[in-house]
Simulated scan of single mutants.
Amino acid sequence: MINHNGDLTNNDTILKTTNRGFAYGDTLFETLKVSYGKVLFWEDHYFRLMASMRILRMDIPMNFTMEFLESQLLATIQANDLEQATTRVKLSVYRHAGGLYTPEDNGVGFIIQVWPLASDFYLFNDAAYEVDLFKDYYVSPSLLSTLKTNNKAINVVGSIYAQENTLDNCLLLNTNKHVVEALNGNIFLVKGNDIKTPPLEDGCLKGVMRKQVLDVIEKSPNYVLIEDHVSPFELQKSDELFITNVITGIQPVSKYRKKEFDNQVAKDIFQKVNTLIRLTS
């Protein structure tokens, strides 16, 4: 079952061709992980969604409180008999139909979809994981690139490229030829005690797991956090690379071209993030 504007239904054909998400990509979404009724990092997801709606000049309904939207997430999970499981949840917010590029109405609707996950917890995956650069198209270093919209053509084409070349993931570049992020998460580079990640100004996604990792690194006396441009030449000089998103947590990269990487720092950060989750549960 899905949740369409608060109505739980089995009808998965509710969107019309006039829906602005379909017609113009005029939709924001949040991908969340919910474990046994607890929405992980819900406050961060909620405030990112609200900020993104303001940037896209969507009207925020008075009832779009943290409590209301969380109750809708949990109601959808319960309707799918998944309250005793860990789920992947997609909360999409779309602008009302009408108009061409210029909307007739800045009001919004929402859809919530849920899927069960195989694992209840974040598990550290140290299996082989190879990445390379995707250089066919580039990310714009702008505020819009930091939002989770359904304008994801570069991620789709990049994912097909990765599949065709037997890669586990690809790294995206912006128009300034700086490394921005992976296809499905933020990228971190480790060199000695320094941990570096691209700044939001370069066009990387304002990831929720990125925020947790930044907080952990900043509080750790063992590491120095650097938010700065990342050159492709830095990748092979790094000791470690790892990718972050809220579903996987932290994914260490084992190989980039001819360079193979360790994962000890990624494992340490991973453990610290898991401790943070337990403390806030």
Rank of each mutant, 00 (worst) to 15 (best):
T146C: 03
F64I: 13
I269Y: 12
S254N: 10
F233I: 03
F124H: 08
S52V: 05
L49G: 04
F242A: 01
E234D: 13
V180Q: 03
G158R: 02
V253R: 07
E83T: 07
K206H: 09
N151V: 08
S119M: 07
N11E: 14
S145P: 04
Q271A: 15
R278T: 13
R257K: 06
D194M: 11
A153E: 11
Q271G: 10
P116G: 01
V93W: 00
L123E: 15
V224K: 09
V89T: 07
M62I: 14
E43I: 02
L56Q: 08
S231P: 07
K196P: 01
K272A: 11
A97C: 12
T275Y: 07
H4I: 15
E240F: 00
L189E: 05
N151A: 13
K237N: 11
K237I: 01
Y129A: 01
N245M: 13
F124V: 08
T146F: 00
K16W: 01
L214D: 02
L8C: 08
R210F: 12
E43K: 11
L144Q: 09
I195D: 06
V213R: 06
H4R: 15
A51S: 13
N184C: 13
F41R: 05
I277R: 08
K177Q: 12
D268Q: 14
S71I: 01
G249C: 15
T27G: 01
F22K: 05
N3L: 09
V224R: 13
L28S: 04
T275R: 13
S142C: 12
E43W: 00
G6T: 04
P232D: 03
S119D: 14
L123C: 10
V180S: 02
K237F: 11
N176M: 06
I269G: 12
N151K: 15
L167D: 00
P61F: 11
S140R: 07
V246N: 15
N3V: 05
Y161W: 09
V208K: 12
L32F: 05
L235I: 03
P141S: 09
I226E: 13
R278W: 06
P198M: 10
L100Y: 15
I250H: 03
L82Y: 13
L74S: 05
Y46W: 06
T9Y: 07
S159L: 10
F134T: 00
G207Q: 02
L73P: 02
E201L: 15
F68S: 05
E201M: 12
E260W: 07
P116V: 01
